[in-house]
């Protein structure tokens, strides 16, 4: 099945103004009607919590109301409708979008992806021994560069039964396991996407079920650092990062948000195809991060450290 990845996530919030300000400062572009788009038109949509048009909420604190998956073509939609129609109601709306619940009870939908194809440069670097990545006199550190999320990268759920959840996406929708944290859950990618993961899950008690975080891909590590630093300057709460994950290799920087979920910037994720053999390790801090910088007030090397020293804090665990 040619599923590409998350196309749009719909939230029902009680603080539309704060959530709007957050998503705008994060770098998404308001497209009207509560939609906040990345460069390729993948999006987060905000609605009032009591909006009658929203699918029902989970009985938990999670504010995520709908995960819309983007697929390549009508044939895939038809295949999904036939497959899931065998054991649950699948509703088709006027636009042709399919809606149902997954086996964990999350409200999900499928549509032909609204993504537009991006044609943008990667981060360009100079590396001794390699041909210069940037033209002569082209500057790498540009304080004023735009830093806009390019595309919705992945979503992570807290689920009460990770095997049930994972098997639904693997057996019914053709997702592939790329790597696994023992006792936590697999990293999954769908068939029309080579990204290391578009979906990850963490086993929790049922009263925690919901979204743990969502992430958008940035151009590269420099843009991620630029965007994250701007969030910190605006007073937003950095939760974890910046750093680089081991599984997936992606750079990360997580922020807390008024949507009641972490919102991550990521960059430079590994890509895999059918030749890849999954790895499995127990989950702990060392497995989750290759390295971690904490965002501290800048100071010159050799200059005075900030008052109170530079003792690095420890980061919470998580993917």
């Amino acid at each position: 099945m040619r599923i590409i990845g998350p196309d749009e996530l719909v939230f029902g919030v009680d603080n539309l103004d704060a959530s709007t300000a957050f998503l705008t400062d994060y770098g998404l572009t308001s497209a009207g009607d509560g939609r906040f788009e990345a460069l390729d038109k993948t999006a987060i949509t905000l609605r009032a919590k009591d909006d009658a048009d929203l699918p029902p909420p989970l009985p938990t604190a999670s504010l995520l109301r709908l995960t819309i998956w983007g697929v390549e073509d009508q044939a895939t939609l038809d295949a999904i409708e036939a497959e899931l129609g065998t054991d649950r109601p699948v509703i088709k709306d006027d636009s042709g979008m399919l809606r149902c619940k997954d086996d964990a009870g999350f409200e999900i939908a499928f549509r032909i992806s609204h993504r537009v194809k991006l044609d943008l440069p990667a981060e360009l670097i100079n590396s001794p021994g390699a041909a210069p990545g940037r033209a002569m006199n082209a500057i790498g550190a540009n304080q004023d560069a735009e830093a806009k999320p390019r595309t919705l990268s992945h979503i992570v759920y807290f689920v009460p039964d990770m095997d049930l959840m994972a098997n639904f996406y693997i057996d019914r929708l053709g997702f592939v396991v790329t790597d696994k944290f023992t006792n936590t859950g697999p990293f999954l990618r769908p068939q029309a996407n080579n990204d290391h993961h578009v979906l990850f899950m963490i086993q929790t008690p049922a009263y925690m079920q919901g979204i743990e975080h969502l992430a958008f891909h940035m151009q590269g590590p420099t843009e991620l650092m630029l965007a994250g630093s701007r969030m910190v300057q605006k007073g937003y709460e950095s939760f974890w990062g910046p750093g680089r994950h081991k599984f997936g290799s992606n750079w990360f920087w997580y922020f807390s948000s008024p949507l009641g979920t972490h919102v991550e910037y990521d960059a430079d994720m590994d890509m895999h195809d059918g030749a890849w053999i999954e790895r499995e390790v127990p989950m702990d801090k060392e497995a989750a991060q290759l390295f971690l910088f904490e965002n501290v007030e800048k100071w010159a090397p050799g200059g005075p450290p900030p008052a109170g020293g530079t003792k690095a804090g420890t980061a919470p665990e998580g993917p």
């Binding site: 957050f22 604190a61 925690m208 948000s257 008024p258 979920t261 919470p316």
Partner: peptide, 29 residues
Amino acid sequence: YDRARLGWKKDAFLNGPGDRIMCASHGAL
């Protein structure tokens, strides 16, 4: 969560209506 701070922005520790303290990490009220 060990060492998780609650707010999502400087001085922002409440939900929208302001009748609950909210943890912005996973929405606990």
